[in-house]
Structure formats: structure tokens, C-alpha cells
Design a protein around this nucleic acid. Structure first.
Ligand SMILES: [Zn+2]
Ligand SMILES: [Zn+2]
Ligand SMILES: [Zn+2]
Ligand SMILES: [Zn+2]
Lengths: 158, 158
DNA sequence: GGCAAGAATAGGACTAAGTCTCATTTCTGG
DNA sequence: CCAGAAATGAGACTTAGTCCTATTCTTGCC
């Protein structure tokens, strides 16, 4: 598993960098060494369209790419959050979830069915405009916002 | 500790009922007996302007009105949530918080300072209109919505 | 008021998400 | 290849939250 030349491509063309690539780059810029655990977590996260919990990540990696210890997963997720590469999403299930921050494009929020636990993403440009306006008015420097709509999904409300 | 006549006042004048009174009434309507633990939790919640965690409630009651067991507190909070008398608020501190649902008036959302952990309430009618509109468009029956703005507060950003 | 039935609560063991510490492994510059 | 430092693994530990059972309290009835 040599990965020759993996650290080339020093000047990514603007706009063509995937989230995984950007995350790897930002991590490399703020760390001396770069190991396989971080890469595995980043690649797994990038392959998902919505949020994963730490234990789901542990599970997916155990039976996939490369086993990564639980402590490492939490450490890496904290680091990614600190670097604003992932967002911690709390949807009221006594367990945090994490998902890539892909900038304007992938930005979305979550619907949660309180009876079956399903989590679905949704987007709404108008709501985004409203919340951006709110963020300017408020007595903190807003870095990220989180919106969760709770209710009953189609299957559960019958 | 006799509390004579505490259950009179069967017909509250509309609009003058406090949250605590309403909660007691709704609880009474859906339970055969009414005990002191529920009353203590409801009165404590009503005396707060923002959300408390279950353990903060346990603490406050231990050194105050009446000791209430942890299991009872969680049971009572679940019940209050089911009856839509309180809202569970997750602000990303690995611990749920609960606060009274006082209807349109007390409705608010939260700012969280990620560096010192401070939690502050805020309101925004325009944002409420936007989120109400969103809620109609979305593939679940929305019962409650939650908005959390994360960032750095005045003290921490210096 | 006293009593019986069952509801509410206390107490404490238990579960599981998340943290911490330290030994081991891996990476990197020389 | 080597030394030093960084990253990771392993598992004990902490703590929010759950679950079960015994006890206490509430209520309707006498
Ligand atoms: Zn998502
Ligand atoms: Zn948004
Ligand atoms: Zn509040
Ligand atoms: Zn609102």
C-alpha cells in the first residue's frame, strides 16, 4: 500500500477540489504527520450524503477500509470540527452525528421522525436567507447554524 | 405540609393560566393520581427563563423544594414532552435540556457559544414565518422545530 | 377517618456514548 | 536507516440516560 505521489498536486484548480481532497489538504497543513486513520475517516465521510455517528463510522471502517480505534475516531472528528471541515449535528437521539461541510452547495438541514428515528436532509434557500439575516442581528459571531424539524414521517403517521 | 384546597379553581379564566397551572391541569387530565414529584418539577421549570438539563433539575430540587429521584425526573420530562408541555433542546453539549412550551409568546431559539458553553435565548418573528412556511413544504408532519446558532460570544471572541 | 388497589416515586443496578491515559506504532527529516 | 515526534490503539473510566423492583403515596370507597 505505497500510495506513490499522493502528496503531489500542490496547486489544486479552484473549484475542482473534492471535499475529501480539501479536508486532506487542510489536515496536512495543520499537522506534521499524516496517517491512515484520518484518511480513512475522511474518505468514509466524503462517501456519505448525510450525517454519520461516531459508532457508525467505527462500524463501517471495521468491516471496510481499515479498522480505526474509537478514541481515534472521536479525536479525528473533533479535529475536523475545529477546522470547520465537518459539522456536528444533534438531532435529539442521544448521539451526535457528523457530516462534511461542503460549503454553499452541500449545505442542508434535517428532518427527524421522532417515532422511527429516520433522519432526512432538506434544503430551503428562502429559509437560508432568513437565517443569514438573523445571524447578523444576534449578539454572537455566528459560525454555523443548525435547524432540525421534528415530526412524524409518512410511514409513521398513517 | 397539607396544601388544603390546592385543587380548587376548576375553571381557569382563559388567558390568565400560567404555564405551571396549565401543565398541572393537563397532567391531572391524563393521570389518575397526582404526586409531589411532578409538581416540584413543573414548578421549577416554570420558574426558569431558559432550558435546564435533567441533572440540573435533580440538583436544584435536592437543595430546594423536595428531593426527586433521577428516574422520576426523566419519566416526568418524557411525559411533559409527550404532552407537548416542554421542549427538549439539544445544543450540542452531550446533554439534553428541557424548557416549558409557553405557546407563541415564550417561543424562542438558542445561541450557543462554543468556546465557553453559554446558552442564550433569542427570538425572530421573520425567521419564524420562514420556518413555518418551510414546515408545510416538507415530507414530514412537523410538530416542533429547533434552531441553534453556534459561534463565539462577545467575551470569547476578543 | 381507615382501608384496599393501584398509581407514583425512590433507589440503585445497568447500558451505552464519549473521554482519558498511556503504551505502541507510524511517519518524517536528516 | 535512525532518532524523535506525532499518530494511533487498547481499554479503563466517566457520565447521561434507562430499567427494574420495592416502597410510598393518592384516591375512591366504606
Ligand atoms: Zn445531513
Ligand atoms: Zn442552513
Ligand atoms: Zn431557552
Ligand atoms: Zn421557532
Amino acid at each position: 500500500m505505497a500510495r506513490p505521489g499522493a502528496r503531489l498536486a500542490a496547486m489544486p484548480r479552484a473549484g475542482t477540489e473534492s471535499w475529501s481532497e480539501r479536508a486532506q489538504r487542510v489536515l496536512a497543513e495543520s499537522h506534521r504527520h499524516s496517517g491512515g486513520a484520518r484518511r480513512a475517516v475522511v474518505e468514509l465521510l466524503d462517501s456519505q450524503s448525510c450525517a454519520l455517528s461516531a459508532l457508525e463510522i467505527e462500524d463501517a471502517l471495521r468491516t471496510g477500509r481499515r479498522r480505526v480505534a474509537r478514541a481515534s475516531i472521536y479525536r479525528i472528528l473533533d479535529e475536523l470540527e475545529r477546522l470547520e471541515l465537518v459539522q456536528k449535528v444533534e438531532v435529539g437521539q442521544a448521539m451526535a452525528r457528523y457530516e462534511p461541510l461542503r460549503g454553499e452547495n452541500g449545505h442542508h438541514h434535517h428532518l427527524v421522525c421522532d417515532s422511527c428515528g429516520a433522519v432526512m436532509p432538506f434544503t430551503d434557500p428562502e429559509l437560508e436567507r432568513a437565517i443569514k439575516k438573523t445571524s447578523r442581528r444576534v449578539p454572537i459571531d455566528v459560525a454555523v447554524h443548525e435547524i432540525v424539524l421534528h415530526g412524524a414521517c409518512a410511514d409513521c403517521r398513517q
